[in-house]
């Protein structure tokens, strides 16, 4: 579904991504793990068009998208739930969700999605009139996730959904991510918490210093001593 071919990206002269190849299959949940500053966020920003890659191609559903504007890419069906949530803090919860479905023309689909979101995160329904800025950290992450789903995406990009959350809340969020995957949405997850990622993802890519160092299923990766040592701390 998504194919990344030989992507290079630099911030000035600093290298962020170097010859990254990556493929996400339809209805899969892939994860990218790696240490801080490995280029994980940059990778997602390149996919959603916020950064233009210096070299390489991004192909989505057989179409080259790396030269499109972010809002055009969003309309193709890629929803990017960005790092640090980036909610519209002065808008209400409901308005945030409506903005999430900005590109959605189908009113009935909007209703369905809203029901699904409220069912998954009952807290958001309770607080739908509240300003997003007044929500707790966990609720904000739920809203960010919900807002991304509201566009009925074909591909969901999640950037560190567990960042700064209490373990109990993390579990809730990942519960929701699984549920979304089960609904059939292709997902690419970027996560620093390797344990969580390994538990939920079908396939895992390890990104270090801008390069993919390793990849495989959970079963394959846990056998690697380096993974054990660096990421799982066993």
């Amino acid at each position: 579904m998504l194919e990344i071919r030989k992507i290079y990206h630099y911030y000035g002269s600093a290298k962020a991504l170097e010859e990254v190849n990556l493929q996400v299959d339809e209805k899969a949940l892939d994860a990218v793990i790696g240490p801080n500053g490995a280029g994980k966020t940059t990778l997602l920003r390149v996919i959603s068009g916020l950064e233009e890659p210096d070299r390489g191609k991004v192909i989505f559903l057989g179409e080259r998208i790396d030269e499109l504007e972010p809002h055009e890419i969003a309309k193709k069906g890629i929803a990017h739930c960005p790092e640090r949530r980036k909610l519209f803090y002065d808008l209400s919860v409901l308005e945030n969700l409506k903005m999430g479905s900005f590109a959605l023309k189908d009113k009935k689909k909007f209703k369905e999605l809203l029901d699904f979101v409220y069912e998954t995160f009952p807290r958001l329904k309770e607080r739908k009139k509240q300003r997003a800025g007044t929500l707790s950290g966990g609720e904000q992450q739920m809203l960010a996730l919900a807002r991304a789903i509201m566009s009925d995406p074909k591909l969901l990009l999640l950037d560190e959904p567990s960042l700064g959350l209490a373990p109990k809340v993390k579990a809730q969020i990942f519960e929701a991510i699984k549920k979304i995957r089960d609904e059939g949405t292709t997902t690419l997850l970027v996560e620093q918490d390797a344990v969580l990622a390994l538990n939920v993802a079908d396939y895992i890519h390890v990104l270090e210093e801008g390069k993919i160092e390793m990849r495989g299923t959970k079963e394959e990766l846990v056998k690697e001593p380096r993974i054990k040592q660096v990421y799982l701390g066993i």
Binding site: S48, E69, H71, A74, H80, F88, G100
Partner: peptide
Amino acid sequence: GTSIRAISQDREAATLMGINA
């Protein structure tokens, strides 16, 4: 109008929603 407010709060996030800023 809502998208105007959304852009004023976070332009990048708004473009990710498919809003043509």
